[in-house]
Simulated scan of single mutants.
Amino acid sequence: MPKLILCLLFFCSSIFATQLSDKEILAQANNDFEQAKFAALQNPEVAEDLYIKSINAYRFLIEEKAYKNSQLYNNLANAYFMHGEAGLAILHYHRALRLDPTNADISHNLRYAQAQTNDVVPQNSFQEILNFVCFWHAWNPQLRLGLFFFFNLSFFGLCAYALHSNKTWVKKTRLYTGLLSLIFAISILISVSSFDQNIDGVIVSKESNPRQGNGYIYNNAFTNPLHAGTEFALLEDRGEWLHIELVNGSTCWIKNSDIALLK
């Protein structure tokens, strides 16, 4: 029933939205979202209606008007998150970051939403070692970019200075700044070129019981069910059932209706 109501509201809002300009629709959606945050403490029912209105308006701009804008996806994700739909929020944060991989605000929103999910999937040993050794790769992308420019400029400045000086400290400092510049350059390139390459979708159903095979005749893959917001890589698509891999390397089969793909 809630899904039916949401669809009807989306249909009605789409008809109403055709009478407004895109800028007016966006402004109204942003206003509804802000009002919902203030109303949440005093009148949760009013807040819920306002969140749904903002969600429908953002969806209209994305789905009907075909806007591909990272901030628009981020706004939609924020509205879903505040409405209690963590799975759809994480899904759209990922979509926003695919359009703008170095956006620090969206990255922060995604990490916060991930921290609120029920399924905290542990990383495998290799990932833990890699994150420990290359700890700087988890830093804010803008911070890494700033450090790259700092060390890069320092390196070339020292190269120019070394033309007129044979001091040992100049050569050593030039070597260190060059290495640090290279390290941060590689880190940034990895973030930009391979961001989310292992995340193909997100569980959006409130609760899902994956199986060891593609059907209900197979046993449950895990002792406990998975919940909305759990991310995965797609291994195989058999229509009604999908073979997926979680971030810790665990694999299972899940119903197509329980998930949403990033594409």
Rank of each mutant, 00 (worst) to 15 (best):
L163P: 00
C159D: 09
N43D: 15
D22A: 10
P225F: 12
N256Y: 10
V202T: 13
F60W: 12
N118G: 05
N56W: 00
R111F: 05
F195R: 12
P2F: 06
A221L: 01
K53E: 12
D258Y: 07
D32A: 08
V133A: 03
N248M: 03
N224A: 10
L226M: 08
E245A: 13
D49K: 11
I254P: 03
A104F: 03
I199D: 03
H164W: 11
G178K: 06
N220L: 09
N69M: 09
Q116N: 04
Q114A: 06
S21D: 12
R98Y: 03
D200H: 15
S257N: 10
R238K: 14
A228Q: 13
G239F: 12
L261Y: 10
L130T: 07
G178L: 11
D105C: 00
E128P: 01
A29V: 12
S54D: 02
A40Q: 14
S181N: 09
S194F: 15
D100T: 08
Q212N: 14
N69I: 14
E24T: 02
A160T: 04
L261I: 08
T230V: 10
D196V: 02
N78D: 14
L242K: 04
L97P: 00
R111H: 11
F10T: 01
P210N: 09
D32M: 02
V204C: 07
L110M: 07
F16H: 04
G213F: 01
L6M: 02
A185P: 03
A233Q: 04
S205H: 05
A86T: 11
G146M: 12
